[in-house]
Structures are given as C-alpha cells and as structure tokens.
Nucleic acid binder design. Structure first.
Length: 599
RNA sequence: GGGGGUGUAGCUCAAUUGGUUAGAGCGCUGCCCUGUCACGGCAGAGGUUACGGGUUCGAGCCCCGCCACUCCCGCCA
C-alpha cells in the first residue's frame, strides 16, 4: 500500500515506472470493457485504467464495485495516454496508471451531497455542509482555504521570528472583566461559586509581558466573545496579537506593513506596496463617511455647508444654523434607482435619526427632485461643479450634525456601490487590495444615557502627547494613539500605544472613566501595581486572522476559512454543541440550572 | 432583543389564481457498452412539501404558531 506519489505528481517523464497512489475515488467511468477511475488526494487527481484483458476477473469486478469517495490504493505502471486522449483540464492529464492491483481501504456510502463537482457543491445548503464538514472540507476550494490559512500562519510566525519576536502563550482561563464584550464563563469545581472567563483578547497579559521585559511578543491567540454572530464574526476567533516595547506609532506601522507584505507574497505571490496611506479618523469620515473606508472606488462625500448656509431651503440652512452640515454624494449611473432602493436608503437615513433623504435624479437633461425648486441658480451651479453632475447621476444629500451626516452618506455610499456592482456599472478587480491606516481616533466618546465618558478603543490607549492637557478641560478633543489597519473597507486590526505610567492609567480609570477606586483595584490592581515596578513604554496591535485569511481567499464569510465554524446561533451542527450536562457534573461544579435541560 | 430571506426527492431547483396522480436535471439501483474524463444508452426506485394548528369542498401555495439555516440592526471596551 505504500504510496509512492501523490495525485498531482505524475508526468510523461514518469512513464515506465511503477507507482502506487492512495486516495479517494473521485469519479468512475465504467465503459463495460474498460474502467477508468480517477484517484483524488489533497494534491490533485490522476486517472487509473482497469483493463480486463490483463487483470484477474475478481480484480476487475472489484474495480467495478467502487463508488464515489471509496478509499483505495492503486498500483500500476505509469504510461503516457494514447494519442488524442489527453485531458488538458488536469495537471496529470497526459498520463495514466495502468492498474495491476487495487486495494480497497474503505468503502464509502452514498454521500449526502456531491463533493466532486465544484459548481453544484458550492450551492449546497450551508447547514448540510456544516453537518458534514469533513465532506465539505474535501472539496478542493475548501482544502485550498485551509492551505492558505496555514501558509499565512507560517509566514506570520517566520516573519515575526526574524524580527526578534517571541511567541508566548497566555491563559485561556482568565477572569471576568465586565467592560467590553460579553464573556464566556467557566465554572470552577475547586472554588464553589467562582468562575473563570475566557479572554476576549490577551490584552492585559501582553502588556504585563512588556513589564516582564519580553520586549517583543506575539501569539496566534484564540479569543472568545459571547456576542451575536455575523458573517465576519464567530464566538471563537483568532488574532495575530503583537506587542512591542520602546516604540512609537511609526515603528508599529512599518512592522505590520512588512508582515502583511510577507503574508501576501507567501500566500498569493503578490507584492503589496508599502508604506500604506495614513488617513485621520476625521478625514475618513469626511470623505467616506466611515472609519474603515473602502477606497477602491470614488463616490466620495462632498461638503456643501457653505453653499447652503443662506439657502432658501430651510431644511438645509436651518440645520447649518444649528451647527450642522450639508453633505452629498454623486452616485454616478444610478438615476434609474427604483422606488424600493430610494426607500431603503431613506430608511438608512432615518435609522440615524434623520427625517428623510433628499435626492436629485438627473434624467433626460432634467433634475428630477422634490427639493430642487427651492434652490437658487448659485446653489445649483455649486452642486453642478462640486459634484460633477452629469446625465444619469443620482445625488443624495444628508443634512445633520457632522458625524451623523457623514455616517448616513457612508452607509448609502456602500449600498450604492453594491447596486452598481450588481449592475456591472462598477467593476473592482478581485486582486485589488487597498490598505490604509486610520489614525488619530478620539480617545473618548460620551455616553449620553449614562452621562459619562467611555474609551473609544480600550482604557489602556495612550492619548496623543500634545492633547494630554485637554483630558481634564475638553475630553472630546483628545486624540488617542490608536490606529486601525483597513483593507478594502474591512477592519483588519487595531491597536495603540499604551499608557505605561501608573498615575496616568489610574487617572484615566478613576477620573475620566469614573470607575470607582475599589473596582479599579479589584479588576486592574495587579496591572497598576506591575506598572509601578518599571514598565517600558509599549504598544501593539491585534489583527483579525480569520478576516485576513478570508480576504486572501476572496470570501466574505470567515466560516469558509475556519475548519469547524459555529452557526449564526453559535452551535456546531456536526458535534451538536453546546449540550446539556449530567446532573452529577452540575453538582461537581456547584451549579443549578433554572432552565429545563434539553436532552 | 428586532427586521428581512430561505426551507418541496439524497443534491440543486420547478409547480399559473388555492384545483386531477407534486415535476425536471444531477445522484442512486439494475441491465448494456473497450478510450472515457460532466462517458453514453435503456429501464427503475425514491416525497409526512421542516414541524404543529387553522381557513376551505379542496392547501406545497392563504392565516396563526414553532423550529432550523442565513443576512442585517442592536451588540462586538
């Protein structure tokens, strides 16, 4: 049975050699007199031929009894195929194995769905694919995704090792830190009534490792968040977690640029240009209406506030008088938008608290709009020149406070792009990767309901040095030393330079975030204490590894790049988890369930 | 927690306004076939229309409930 070659290896130069292939029956073509069986393994597939004229009848019958996905070992002489019978579709298409022996290592029952035909298999209900994940993963596209993931992980480790980083594991049994994401909780048998929590990220450990003098740490860290799922969010996911001492922001940018350059080159053979453009949070919102802009297409937001400050159209001028702004985008080629599409966009606007959505359709040389009659000639001319209005355009307006107006149009911009893509009017090459850094986020945001400030990112983020005096006088204006790396409108990761002075950290916790002193001590006391014993300045980043691999693989769902993902309700259809416990297990854990146990 | 979509043969899908025995392709089973590679030909089996109620002379289709999958909002420091 010993395998001599894999199924993507044999070429005409091997003719005359005896070879043994092991793998799955990909397809069987029984012509009555001669049987062709394609053997598939992880690398590819190779045709074998069973010819009754030189085979024992039992062996020929055995070949005839095979069906799809049986596991076999076939031995025979490699030979060039007869003239005119080459198969140019596969790499081994010029040769075949003239079988002299066949061992059936295992039979396969009829499969619940086909794995041999990519077009059919790709359309199979995901529920079924998840239930029989081991079959789904046999499909070449899924096998390729696993391989890309492995390549990306290895490239990451090699690159960071070259850069002097140590890979260090941190605990997955941690404790609850109620800020941030909801946590998965693990009961303790040895400590009745006490619980571990699975970490939402190794944030605190990696900072402690800097205090420990590690200087350069990384980990492909599994993280856990008990929040609702999305196509790009799973309850357990993997981060490339990085932390470095004695650095400033620029040091980290160039490290991550080098890392991503290496990953793209290893996984896709592509050179991505570095350094990445930098854009401030302010500019990202002003131009794209979102803090993770997709810059692969234009349709940028245009500010019209000054043009409408004195407008007769009170909806605009009134908003401006109250400190708001008027902005617009030009969705080129969307004048034919349907009533339903306009309504969807209006609903977006309303979900942000706007009263409605103003628009102009430019059709047959006319500006069709419920509001254009309120505009003066100067205003119309400003629109025409600033927005570059032409036949077939759809202009969409937002008049609101700055952030709201930006976010409304940002949402609509992406919606319009999707429509234009589906109509073929906007074409984005699949190998286009627009990386950029978004920087200078506000350190703090205000929670109106609770009447207090909270960290935009997390409470360990250092303020920009120049803004430190503003912490007590004008917190809103304080910029954080936080950065996000974005590609094609996807937030790939984020991080920051951390606070390394214990006094500053304590001040942020207690005075700015208004966390009571005793709570700070209970939750973060060990950290503040650590900082007092010689903490180097440090910073880091966490990259969403699943998202990164999904982008490399050209898919929008990270389920396609995770071997055994959870469903949208957080269950595993293959293993049927989560599941109930035996009463004894509950007793051992000192737990009582108030919900009837499902079997 | 909220909103949208889907659920019909093993798989992918169809089924006019609520109307006869729920169809097709692939797969599967049997027979035939010595150069196929989406092999081909002939024949055949296969259905609790997710599930539970209701309306109706009659429900795959309409109504109510429920389950699963999925997308989005909230949520994800």
């Amino acid at each position: 049975m010993k395998r001599t070659h894999h199924c993507n290896e044999l070429r005409p130069s091997h003719a005359g050699e005896t070879a043994t292939l092991c793998g799955w029956v990909h397809s069987r073509r029984d012509l009555g007199g001669v049987i062709f069986i394609d053997i598939r393994d992880r690398e590819g597939r190779t045709q074998t031929v069973f010819d009754p004229s030189d085979l024992a009848p039992e062996l020929f019958a055995l070949a005839g009894s095979l069906r799809s996905e049986c596991v076999v070992s076939v031995t025979g002489k490699v030979r060039a195929r007869p003239a005119g019978t080459n198969n140019p579709k596969i790499a081994t298409g010029e040769v075949e194995i003239h079988a002299s022996s066949l061992v059936v290592l295992n039979y396969a029952e009829v499969l619940p769905f086909p794995v041999d035909d990519p077009e059919t298999a790709a359309k199979v209900n995901e529920e079924l694919r998840l239930q029989y994940r081991y079959l789904d993963l046999r499909r070449p596209e899924m096998a390729r995704n696993l391989r890309v993931r492995s390549k990306a992980a290895t490239a990451t480790r090699v690159f960071l090792d070259e850069q002097g980083f140590l890979e260090i594991e941190t605990p997955t049994l941690f404790k609850s830190t109620p800020e941030g994401a909801r946590e998965f909780v693990v009961p303790s048998r040895l400590h009745p009534g006490q619980f571990y929590a699975l970490p939402q990220s190794p944030q605190q450990f990696k900072q402690i490792l800097m205090v420990a003098g590690v200087e350069r740490y990384f980990q492909l860290a599994r993280c856990y968040r008990d929040e609702d799922l999305r196509a790009d969010r799973q309850p357990e996911f993997t981060q490339v977690d990085i932390e470095m001492s004695f650095i400033e922001r620029e040091d980290l940018y160039s490290l991550v640029e080098g890392l991503l350059k290496r990953v793209w080159s290893t996984a896709l053979g592509m050179d991505i240009p570095t350094p990445f453009p930098r854009i401030s949070f302010q500019e990202a919102l002003n131009r794209f209406g979102i803090d993770k802009p997709d810059t692969r297409f234009g349709m940028e937001l245009v500010d019209l506030t000054e043009d409408f400050r004195a407008s007769a159209f009170k909806v605009f001028s009134g908003t401006i008088a109250q400190g708001g702004v008027v902005k617009a985008i030009n969705a080129k080629g969307m004048a034919g938008a349907t009533q339903g599409q306009i309504e969807t966009m209006t609903d977006y606007a309303k979900s942000f608290g706007a009263r409605g959505l103003a628009f102009i359709k430019v059709e047959k040389g006319e500006w069709k709009s419920p509001i254009v009659k309120f505009f003066g000639d100067v205003e119309k001319e400003a629109l025409r020149s600033k927005l570059g209005i032409e036949e077939g355009d759809l202009i969409l307006f937002a008049a609101d406070q700055w952030l709201n107006a930006c976010e409304i149009l940002g949402k609509i911009r992406l919606y319009c792009a999707d429509i234009l893509k589906s109509q073929g009017k906007l074409v984005i090459p699949p190998n286009r990767f627009n990386f950029l850094w978004v920087v200078n986020f506000p350190l703090l945001s205000f929670d109106k309901e609770q009447n207090r400030w909270y960290s935009s990112h997390h409470p360990f983020t250092a303020p920009v040095d120049d803004d430190i005096p503003l912490l007590t006088t004008d917190p809103k204006q304080v910029r954080g030393q936080h950065y996000d790396v974005v590609v094609n409108g996807v937030e790939l990761g984020g991080g920051s330079i951390r606070i390394h002075q214990p006094d500053m950290q304590k001040m942020i916790f207690e005075q700015i975030l208004q966390i009571p002193s005793d709570l700070v001590k209970a939750r973060f006391g060990y950290m503040l204490e650590a900082f007092r014993f010689g903490c180097p300045p440090h910073g880091g980043i966490a990259l969403g590894f699943d998202r990164l691999v999904a982008i490399l693989c050209g898919t929008t769902s990270i389920r396609d790049v995770i071997a055994f993902p959870k469903t949208a309700k957080g269950t595993c259809l293959m293993t049927d988890s989560p599941a109930s416990l035996e009463p004894k297990q509950l007793r051992d854990l000192h737990l009582e369930c108030r919900v009837p146990q499902k079997d």
